[in-house]
């Protein structure tokens, strides 16, 4: 390695130590200055090392881009695609997993965190202008349920959740994923892994071990447990949905009511 690189490395090491000392001493302004110096030194190092490597064949730079037209779909459409497959209110993490398993992949949970807010803004400024909105699931207090995404075209009974709904929706999701897998000629391995993971948590869905789950077995097992919960869950959901229909404005029906105003009726 050449001399300027050595010198730069030493400088970088010193600066790092200084930054950490400054951070430790809570001297944020000094830390910022030092960090800037550090960044400059690192950039200089990057440049120097490139110059030095110039003679060698170029490495493949940058992350490999996915070769899929679908990846170019807007995020909201990718999310919608996953929701259509699952058909129940779903947490962002599972949306990402389903997208990864069956579709383009490349979604990240943080991208989804502001989605509901953006959709709400759009709806408020121009109601029903879009064919669908990515909206909230509603709790039995008619407030938005944390972290769940739903489709505005679903009936209210599907978009509200009671205490049993997380389980019911989980089992439903497993059934939907398993059914979708059986429709595919070549089940993607990522999707099989996703289903196998879910199957671990459904009694009777796996025959021991960590091997790939059989979709038909999963469907059977999940339906069996669903039968236990469905009547109560359906009744609870119908009750909440009726209240939501009576008490909420259009925008609240999609995005939930503020927690304070909905103390009536629940608990």
């Amino acid at each position: 390695m050449s001399e300027p690189l050595d010198a730069l490395e030493q400088r970088i090491a010193e600066l790092r130590a200084e930054v950490r000392r400054a951070v430790k001493a809570r001297d944020t302004s000094l830390a910022r200055l030092l960090r800037a110096d550090l960044r400059r030194a690192e950039r200089a190092w990057d440049e120097a090392v490139v110059t030095e490597e110039a003679g060698k064949p170029a490495e493949e730079a940058g992350p490999a881009l996915r070769e899929s037209g679908a990846a170019l779909m807007p995020i909201r459409e990718q999310v919608h695609q996953a929701l259509l497959l699952l058909g129940v209110p779903t947490a962002a993490k599972l949306v990402v997993a389903v997208n990864e398993a069956f579709f383009a992949g490349g979604l990240r949970s943080p991208q989804l965190s502001s989605l509901r807010r953006d959709e709400e803004r759009s709806f408020r400024s121009d109601p029903y202008a879009r064919p669908y909105y990515l909206c909230a699931a509603l709790t039995d207090r008619l407030s938005p349920a944390r972290g769940l995404l739903a489709d505005s075209t679903w009936p209210l009974e599907v978009r509200v959740v009671g205490p049993l709904s997380p389980r019911v929706d989980f089992l439903t999701t497993a059934v939907r994923i398993a059914e979708h897998l059986t429709r595919l000629a070549e089940p993607p391995p990522g999707a099989v892994r996703l289903l196998s993971r879910m199957a671990q948590n459904i009694p009777g869905a796996v025959e021991g071990g960590f091997g790939p789950a059989d979709p038909a077995t999963v469907v059977g097992a999940a339906r069996a447990e669903l039968e236990v919960h469905l009547p109560a869950d359906t009744a609870q959901r119908a009750e909440v949905a009726a209240r939501a229909g009576d008490q909420l404005t259009d925008v609240e029906r999609l995005f939930g009511a503020a927690a304070l105003s909905t103390l009536r009726g629940a608990c």
């Binding site: 947490a91 049993l164 709904s165 997380p166 389980r167 989980f170 999701t173 948590n201 009694p203 919960h229």
Partner: peptide, 23 residues
């Protein structure tokens, strides 16, 4: 998924009945 993993664990560990799944 509504504590799906935890539910399995408690079913195994404490014999929680299938019907009890509220979250």
């Amino acid at each position: 998924n509504g504590c799906a993993e935890l539910l399995r664990l408690l079913r195994e560990l404490m014999g929680l009945p299938i019907a009890q799944v509220g979250y």
